[in-house]
Design a protein around this nucleic acid. Structure first.
Lengths: 243, 243
DNA sequence: CCCTATTTGTTCGTATGTATC
DNA sequence: TGATACATACGAACAAATAGG
């Protein structure tokens, strides 16, 4: 019998559910952190393990808690809804969700276009392209690692501008591209390498989303190709096809 | 020295590359199958392991072979490019890629709308909805497992029609919906459960794509909500945002 | 590779209170 | 009052996944 809970004839499991919800809301358990085990929660509340499980199922349904067999229960991270439409802009997208954002340039380089890059940018294979590797962060946590590719002969100073402005959109502005549009986006999934998991600060046992996207100018000509890895647990790509 | 390869002064690695490509094209190694180990290939061609690796990297670049550290090299399955746009139809989509297709109804049921379903269909939580679980197959291999949800009060006979026609589009036709549109699609990734991996006939150590999609009628009112799991290794979702 | 400890998932059985007919 | 169904709660055992040595 637990007297601190036993009131109002409300079922035990519901009382526990509300208590846990409140604690998570109050920040007792941070997003992403592991919750106490079922057994220890059962002990704490003075109930059977089943009762705790019953309480938790509702919170899983609500997307507040995520359960992983053999690992434990975790407070669900706030997933970032990342809308992808004709005009996709990282900065605008995130600020609408009241999150802080940032971009870190990892490296800039000049490489030869492989088949995928050359097809996307409609240039010859082997031509020099500027590779821009960057990490996008939301609420001080990395959400994606991108490799952006630009035709070097068309945008010779992209690398410099990117390092100065830390923004793709702004860099393109300085190159004379005042507006651009998302042409297509391909999405797959795979397991990350150790290094990729490290960059995204996520366990390497969890999958990532991979997107290959092409941006174009007003004439429909490609201006940039990008391959982006997204932290699978913290991101939902949203495609709106209403118009 | 290997005399069967050594001709035309073509580099050994390139000869090996072409030989492997030819074998895969000829079906000696089936898509998805494991290739011989680097070492055994090296032995077979009478070259050093490095030479084989050099040959393989080119095939990886071309998307013909996939290498998984510690597991081996695999012939890349033909990925299905699944375009998602305003008008998304499974049948049309697949036939354009000259693949055979099929849909298997796993179960039909009447369940209560959870929060996600009710929000998507704009009905009250707990209202009865028809759940339609089906497996889509391409070239006799499952590519996705879908749960489609329809408001039971609006489409009371969906389950019956689906079992008869094995097609969502056709079933909606019989319900008086002669045209419908994709409203939005959300994409994430996660690891599959054992049962899900089994349904998709894929290793349970490989991730799946999850999409949550809403279809609407001409008036913009929702008519169906679906959660779909895609075999991550065999599918690329393609979002075209040109119009 | 096996082995072990930890943790969640599943399935039994049991008991009690409550609502309904 | 009795019969029945359902929700709540506990206990035990085993299965399955994970993590670490």
């Amino acid at each position: 019998m637990n007297h601190s809970l036993n009131n109002h004839a409300m079922p035990l499991w519901r009382q526990i559910q509300q208590k846990l919800k409140q604690e998570i809301f109050d920040g007792v358990h941070e997003p992403g952190e592991r919750l106490p085990t079922e057994l220890s929660l059962a002990k704490r509340f003075g109930v059977n393990r089943h009762t705790v499980r019953h309480a938790v199922t509702g919170l899983v349904e609500l997307g507040i808690i995520r359960v992983e067999q053999g690992r434990g229960m975790f407070v669900q991270e706030h997933v970032l809804f990342y809308p992808i439409s004709k005009r996709t802009r990282f900065t605008e997208t995130v600020e609408k969700q009241n999150r802080s954002r940032g971009r870190r340039i990892v490296s800039t380089d000049t490489v030869k276009a492989n088949s995928r890059i050359s097809e996307s940018l409609r240039i010859l294979r082997g031509r020099p392209v500027i590779q821009l590797v960057s990490i996008a962060e939301v609420d001080d946590r990395p959400v994606s690692v991108s490799s952006n590719y630009f035709d070097k002969s068309r945008f010779p100073d992209m690398a410099k501008y990117a390092l100065e402005t830390l923004s793709i959109t702004e860099s393109l502005n300085r190159c004379g591209i005042y507006d651009y549009f998302r042409k297509s986006t391909r999405v797959t999934t795979r397991m990350p390498t150790r290094a990729e998991a490290e960059s995204l600060k996520q366990p390497h046992t969890r999958p990532v989303l991979k997107s290959e996207s092409i941006d174009m100018d007003e004439n429909g000509d490609p201006i940039g190709y990008a391959e982006t890895l997204w932290a699978g647990e913290r991101v939902k790509l949203v495609f709106d096809t209403t118009d």
